[in-house]
Design a protein around this nucleic acid. Sequence first.
DNA 1: GACAGAAAGATTGTCAACAGTTAGCGTCCC
DNA 2: GGGACGCTAACTGTTGACAATCTTTCTGTC
Lengths: 225, 225
Amino acid sequence: MATIDHKQLWQAVADQLRDEILEGRLPAGSRLVETELADRFGVSRGPIRDALTELARTGLAVDLPRRGTFVSSLTEADLNEVYVIRRAIEEVAVRLAISHATDEELTDLRAALEVVEDAYRGPDLAAAWDADMEFHRSYCRLSGNGRLLAVFEQLASQTVLLMRTAVATRSSLAWIPPVEVHRHIADAIGARDPQRATDAVAAHYRYTEERLSAADRGGDSVPAA
Amino acid sequence: MATIDHKQLWQAVADQLRDEILEGRLPAGSRLVETELADRFGVSRGPIRDALTELARTGLAVDLPRRGTFVSSLTEADLNEVYVIRRAIEEVAVRLAISHATDEELTDLRAALEVVEDAYRGPDLAAAWDADMEFHRSYCRLSGNGRLLAVFEQLASQTVLLMRTAVATRSSLAWIPPVEVHRHIADAIGARDPQRATDAVAAHYRYTEERLSAADRGGDSVPAA
DNA sequence: GACAGAAAGATTGTCAACAGTTAGCGTCCC
DNA sequence: GGGACGCTAACTGTTGACAATCTTTCTGTC
């Protein structure tokens, strides 16, 4: 087993902190203190520093030199900012996925779609967001462009944090997306129709932006991830 | 002056290593050894590790756990990958810049255009690439979307490294772009015409992709940054 | 009570040392 | 000659200590 890459300490710490942030157990704005975390995890400050650097890299935390690292405080303006970029890269991702993915790989996308639709029918909104993000991640992965997937991953973490934060402060942001927004994307990719796929992604984001605008004026529902 | 943020050691080290990589003084594939760099810069290994982490974050280096950090070895396939994402985000960036930028800010873009055109008329190709990248950076900054600019910055570093690497191995990749590719973008933004600006960005990248393909079949010129 | 300055405490940045892992080299065997 | 094995030097990962910086608390003055 010695030849299997085992995790470095900082990775285990970062993974756990990421989960705590995304599950709302470490609230936005809270300070991540190296010395406390070192005591808590029973390791030295070195790996804690590396873990905090990783959280800052993915946007879940903000590192202020000599002052500390804080869980990101993100607003709906941030959500808009993230969606703009996600829309841009996902429109490209679906086109690339259509060109690159094998038929077998497209069945994985289908499976992800089923999971999302099931999840939004269930009681657990956070699980639905995770499934939703996994669906989007699928076609970004199928694009075959590693850098595109890396950009998506950063934005994905921030999206989940943003939605948890936003819904906690504004329940009017909690809504369930129509089932067809994801299905249209999956169908178009399955049919290997680039224009339809791009249009379906654009429609999904337009829907989301409309819901965000509507939430600004009152109303009551859940943002799609 | 005590209230002014001064650089941490790792930042100074990272800046210098970045310059050396981008200027070709640290060749692709070369190993960045913490202990050597610590001796060379006269600091402890801690800040060196942080600097190397930063280089890995921006894609200029690759960190292999327990084995070391290596200057990225990037190929023309990587260049294509980077261009796909840059095109996607820059098409959005010009639209946002048109909506958000003041008239005064647009004169900065004009200035950046002059610098690029002058630079490509000169003998120093690396300086021209830097000016080219600064032009693109300008409208990404004017987009008002900080995350978009951050994504651009990562891709910018990689673009310069890629081009230096590619041209060093394939002089057929060294070509001067027609002056109008950048001018069309700046004109469209100046006219605040989103469709024209998006089309101009797309044309720029189409041109670049065509030159890359032509270079695969022989020929002799310089990729636009 | 409000404000300013000093002191104390807490934290981050850096350093040097120790522990664990890997790469390279030499030797042996087929 | 090629492959496997063992050893050692060099390197990376982690730890604990010291120095520098920031935040909080305390004290004095108005």
